[in-house]
């Protein structure tokens, strides 16, 4: 008689059986495999690279601990110093050109009415082409004799420069190829940002008398600041780490005009087999990317989150 009062007809549900363990922990459990994979691969590579940078590797792959010697050697190496300056110029040029192009494309795609999906789809195509393939394409386009660009210039009766033979021009073509590769994704991010802006805000700006330029700089740009931050992270990261495009386009030449840090790293580690100094360059790239990303996150993404408080 005493037991009948407690029994209910239904068996416990999964939720009840989980009890205190609870559904709150489930999302974390589900993140673990992905997190473990990323941390495993990335963590191993980073830790291994850092370890490598503190060691001297001889021709039998025996490693000796040398402290900061590799760092000292690299920072005193004029070739490294030149490649670092070159990389910074490359990144700044890529950001300026890449972000300007992405913003232009994003605004255009935002306003395209007819064939909207087609154009948005098409705009992503360069992103699906691998860096190597993109670079090979650019080689064809910019080859001195028989390249498309020089063909057009020739037909117009203009001077046909040696695009990939001239140090300055080769550097510019590398920046251009790099932008061609990374702009689509940045465009997509910015387009996403543009689409979050309430259309009534543009109506209000129209009534308030803001012209297209004022609307862009005073309304659109501040409102898509977080997305701008994300695309800046993307553009800077891709440009700092760019390797495949330069390898296939110029291989660092002519006269090292396009030898950026990642190219020199490849040179040191895999051609001169100086793994220790190569690893130092990896650490340098990692630090640059991390610091720059933190900077963007702080000034673009977090700064804007403050305005969203209370929403």
């Amino acid at each position: 008689m005493s037991t009948t009062a407690v029994r209910t007809g239904t068996p416990p549900t999964a939720r009840e059986r989980l009890g205190d363990f609870g559904w709150g922990t489930v999302p974390y459990l589900m993140v673990i495999p992905g997190l473990a994979f990323v941390l495993g691969v990335l963590g191993y590579a980073v830790a291994g690279g850092f370890w490598l940078s503190l060691h001297e590797t001889d021709m039998f792959l025996m490693k000796t601990y040398v402290g900061l010697q590799n760092y000292i050697a690299v920072f005193n190496d004029p070739r490294f110093q030149a490649s670092l300056v070159r990389t910074i110029v490359f990144v700044i040029a890529s950001i300026a050109l890449g972000i300007a192009m992405s913003m232009m494309f994003a605004l255009t795609l935002y306003h395209v009415g007819f064939g909207k999906r087609f154009f948005r789809g098409m705009s992503l195509v360069p992103y699906f082409v691998s860096g190597i393939a993109a670079a090979v394409m650019f080689r064809f386009v910019f080859t001195t004799s028989g390249g498309f660009v020089n063909y057009v210039l020739q037909q117009l009766g203009l001077h046909t420069p040696s695009w990939l033979g001239d140090p300055y021009l080769a550097f510019m073509v590398s920046v251009l190829a790099n932008c061609w590769f990374m702009v689509p994704f940045a465009t997509l991010i910015l387009l996403g940002g543009l689409q979050t802006v309430d259309k009534e805000i543009y109506d209000a700006a129209t009534i308030d008398g803001a012209g297209p330029v004022q609307t862009f700089f005073k309304i659109t740009l501040p409102m898509i600041k977080p997305m701008m931050g994300v695309s800046l992270i993307w553009v800077s990261y891709i440009s700092f780490s760019t390797f495949d495009i330069i390898l296939a386009l110029t291989a660092g030449g002519p006269q090292r005009a396009t030898e950026v840090v990642s190219m020199y790293m490849y040179q040191l580690a895999f051609l001169q087999l100086d793994f220790g100094q190569g690893a130092v360059l990896m650490v340098v790239l990692l630090l640059f990317n991390t610091v720059l990303s933190l900077f963007y996150i702080y000034f673009f993404v977090l700064a804007d989150k403050r305005t969203e408080k209370g929403n």
Binding site: D198, E200, I201, D203, A204, A205, I207, D208, G209, A210, Q214, K218, I219, P222, M223, K225, D304, T307, E308
Partner: peptide
Amino acid sequence: MVFQSYALYPHMSVDENLAFSLKM
């Protein structure tokens, strides 16, 4: 005009919102 979504400029303070049309 007063809009359904208010359409305030979210990155501007209240007085900047009020001043915007006059500044323009």
